[in-house]
Design a protein around this nucleic acid. Structure first.
Length: 365
DNA sequence: GGAATTTGACCTTC
DNA sequence: GAAGGTCAAATTCC
């Protein structure tokens, strides 16, 4: 996987080198007329895109994802046992016996570890239920569980890493996710949408997948990248909906050669801003959108000369208005619009999560 | 007043 | 018995 990523990055940079060679040839040949200036500008813009895409690809490698356990659930899940009465303030049965849920193993279910400087940007709502001083660690460990649905078994632990409070580098956190989210399934069932989800399986982690980027202005058909999910692990391999959406949007901007557009999604800047100003985050209103019933769609980006660069996206259920590339399926439109709206509301709520914050005195509390 | 967080006590595992 | 994980009453916040 890493090799594949490096190979694609090399291809992008090689393309940039080739473009620069052509630009040098153009500039070194003859005095530029208006047509030559346009060509030079086109090369320059293409080079900018190469740099931006390369930086994006490098940036996508900053997060390490490690699956620490095979997808095998362990532990007894059969229910409760009745123990001899001890001094315990916890719930008792009608007969007075102490009823204690059977503890599962320490890491029951699937776990996933992630080293990140922003442990709160994962697209889910979490409720803190405990914290613990850990031996040989300078920082306490925080325990969270999914607050979207009480029945959802997803949990996460957040542990700031020792030595990550340097002056120059941001604090790094190890986030351990335990159990998969079931809240979206529960919600779908509650909404009567089980059939729809079965017909179009989609997890909240992966609403769509970038299949590739095609530059139709190129003579060779212009495939710049294919299957970016391998090049951008966070797109295809479990990144949050907000992250994915932002990456797709930024890529569209990169391809268009423009500066990144202001927040199609609240991630990441709004989440950061929301930590200090939750009101601003919660007041964010998504722009109008169109829903698509297709399972694949394209985000088209027109270049100056009318050439078209197209980002191929799989499993895309929606896109932003006024893109003409989304066919609107009326059947699912209402539900999809609700889903999309929920996504933004969720992100805004996420910004309210209480996390250790950096004070002006340079300390964390 | 309800929801979220804090925190000490308790439970399980090693 | 130590350490990590969870519970739930008390407290705080909105």
């Amino acid at each position: 996987m890493a090799f594949d990523h490096d190979a694609k990055l090399f291809d992008v940079l090689a393309n940039g080198y080739h473009l620069n060679t052509q630009l040098q040839a153009l500039l070194g040949g003859r005095p530029l007329d208006s047509l030559g200036q346009q060509e030079a500008m086109a090369f320059s813009q293409e080079l900018s895109r190469v740099f931006k895409v390369s930086m994006s690809m490098l940036n996508s490698n900053t997060v390490t994802r490690v699956r620490t356990a095979p997808e095998i659930r362990t532990g007894n899940s059969s229910g409760v046992i009745i123990q001899a009465a001890k001094k315990d303030k916890r719930a008792r049965s009608d007969s007075g016996e102490v009823v204690t849920p059977v503890k599962k193993s320490r890491e029951d279910g699937v776990t996933r570890k992630e080293i990140t400087a922003s442990p709160y940007k994962d697209g889910y709502e979490w409720r803190k239920y405990g914290q613990k001083n850990i031996q040989n660690c300078n920082f306490v460990r925080y325990y969270f569980r999914c607050s979207r649905d009480r029945r959802c078994e997803a949990k996460k632990k957040v542990q700031q890493q020792d030595g990550s409070r340097g002056q120059l580098s941001p604090p790094m956190f190890e986030v351990t996710y335990v159990n998969e989210h079931t809240c979206h399934v529960l919600r779908a069932i509650a909404n009567g949408g089980a059939a729809r989800m079965a017909a179009s399986p989609r997890t909240t982690n992966r609403p769509y997948r970038v299949l590739g980027v095609v530059d139709t202005a190129r003579d060779d058909g212009g495939v710049l990248f294919d299957d970016l999910s391998s090049s951008f692990p966070r797109i295809g391999a479990g990144g949050s909906a907000q992250e994915n959406e932002t990456i797709v949007s930024c890529l569209a901007d990169v391809i268009r050669g423009a500066a990144p557009s202001p927040l199609p999604s609240p991630w990441p800047p709004a989440a950061e801003a929301g930590a200090s100003d939750p009101a601003a985050a919660s007041s964010y209103v998504p722009p109008p959108m169109q829903a698509s019933a297709r399972h694949s769609a394209s985000v088209g980006v027109a270049d100056d000369g009318g050439a078209m660069t197209t980002m191929m996206i799989d499993d895309t259920d929606f896109c932003w208005d006024p893109s003409p590339f989304c066919a609107v399926g009326e059947a699912d439109q209402d539900q999809l619009m609700m889903d999309h709206r929920d996504m933004h509301v969720d992100a805004a709520r996420l910004a309210d999560t209480e996390w250790p914050r950096h004070t002006s005195a340079g300390a964390w509390r």
